[in-house]
Amino acid sequence: MANLKDIRMRIDSTKNTQQITKAMKLVSAAKLRRAQNNITNMRPYAITLKKVIANITATQKVSHPLMKKKDNVKNVLLIVLTSDRGLCGGFNSGINKFAEKYYQDNKPKLAKLDFIFIGKRGLDYFARRDIKGIQSFLKLDKEISYDLAKGVAENLIKFFLDGEYDEIRMVYNEFRSAISQVVTCETLLPIEVDKPSLDAISRQASNDIIFDPSPEAIVEDLLKKNFNLQMYRAMSESVASEHGARMTAMENASNNAKEMINRLTLTYNKARQEKITTELIEIVSGAEALKV
């Protein structure tokens, strides 16, 4: 039986840990709300933009190099989106495992498979396996902004148009809810445009649209904007997922700490009771001895 002082110290230190995990949970909850707002604010923009693109491409029969699929995919760029900090459950390890498996499965088939790491966790994980990315971005959760996403996206478009890569894919955590995040792998480029289901009347109407400047120039710009937005969306989802995952992890940690404190308190009380009983017996037997 550990002595009373040891047990008391353990209880105290567990209490401290519990306080920290509780605080972290609250911070994550606040950040999660902000990140969720980000996603909902962006949704109308994204939906309108997609509709416009689909309308133009369907009615004006324009195509664009960014939409051209290559038959023989040889060079692939994989973007790995993780967080900078840990303590968020399986958030990062899920992504890293997926990316590593992708690497092992596809490396022999492809001529070139390169990585871009966004977030420190992914960068470190692959650095330990001697895989270096061609670029990396850190501090996503603090400085997430449309401009940052735009910068990354413009870089990617350049890579793709220069023909350096035939396909650009991204793995990230899609935000379902605060407790559920799903590892997703998406093809970013070439861009896939969904076919709109236009009825005859609206098709007639869209044929009469005035374009200023030409439809081709507008499609080019819209596609790029849409791509920037996709990037921003993925980043926002990843940040929201991170906070969601951390919130859940910290909630669990707080519960575990509470359980541990209960257990320790019970042991402590038992030990204390035992000590008192022993002392009483000693006194009583001492007194009995004196009587005789």
Partner: peptide
């Protein structure tokens, strides 16, 4: 403000997409 100048839009304008 469009790229080629300014455009005023009143109710009943024909459909348009402008940058």
């Amino acid at each position: 403000p469009v790229q080629s100048g300014e455009r005023q839009i009143l109710p009943g304008h024909v459909p348009m997409i402008a940058s």
